[in-house]
């Protein structure tokens, strides 16, 4: 298990592993939005929570198809499925590796991008908290989507179409936490709901992912 995690992290950090692509995408988005919307701090401050959350979501999406596709191509996935590690655990580990290489860096860099978008000062802590609580759900749901489309040609586009609707509740509650935080309102309710979605997804979706993965390997 640890070995699988370490291998996936090592693969991500080695040359060609794609680490940092999502981060760069997130950064570019935060630069492009003001260029498109205009430089007024008031306007940007209003849309900043939404842009940051949508950006995090898209950055996450960008690296999803790598979760299983590479292992599928070189045969590792067949071998993993016959290995003594339960496939459910392997799937969870892969989601964790994806979060550590994509979600966590996004959480850490988000305050800097908040600065670019004139995010109100009160909202920073909630931006970090909401992304910290919400991005694991993005990785787990994305892993399910990646497992669904693993053997398919043109899987990448289909993956976005399948996964993005599943991201809606996370996005709504996550962005809501930040915008309420920005207005100085209580954030308990959306934060609790966001945490609930993450907890539920982490608990249940690996079973669904492992199931569809087995079907795809058959």
């Amino acid at each position: 298990m640890t070995a699988l995690l370490m291998r996936d992290l090592r693969l991500a950090f080695r040359a060609g592993g794609g680490f940092g692509l999502g981060l760069a995408f997130f950064l570019i988005l935060a630069v492009l939005v003001p260029l498109g919307v205009g430089p007024e701090p008031q306007t940007l401050a209003v849309i900043a929570p939404g842009i940051l959350w949508v950006g995090a979501l898209l950055a996450c999406l960008l690296s999803l198809d790598r979760i299983f596709a590479l292992d599928f191509e070189d045969g590792s996935l067949d071998l993993l499925a016959t290995a003594p590690v339960p496939l459910e655990a392997a799937v969870s580990i892969k989601a964790l590796a994806h979060w550590l290489t994509t979600g966590l860096p996004l959480v850490l860099i988000s305050p800097v991008l908040g600065l670019l978008l004139f995010l109100p000062a009160e909202a920073y802590v909630w931006l970090i908290v909401s992304l910290g609580v919400g991005t694991p759900a993005l990785s787990v749901i994305g892993t399910f989507g990646a497992a669904l489309t693993v053997g398919l040609k043109r899987g990448g586009l289909l993956l976005s179409l399948l996964v993005l609707p599943l991201y809606i509740p996370t996005l709504v509650f996550g962005a809501e936490v930040v915008s309420r935080g920005a207005m100085g309102l209580a954030v308990n309710t959306p934060l609790a709901l966001l945490a609930g979605i993450t907890a539920g997804a982490v608990a249940i979706l690996p079973f669904a992912s492992a199931h569809v993965l087995r079907i795809n390997l058959r």
Binding site: P165, L166, P169, V172, E176, P190, I197
Partner: peptide, 17 residues
């Protein structure tokens, strides 16, 4: 199956939002 769960969640998220 998974979509149904998330569709219901999205419905409540939309109301809340």
């Amino acid at each position: 199956l998974v979509g149904s769960v998330f569709a219901v969640l999205s419905r409540y998220a939309a109301i809340f939002w």
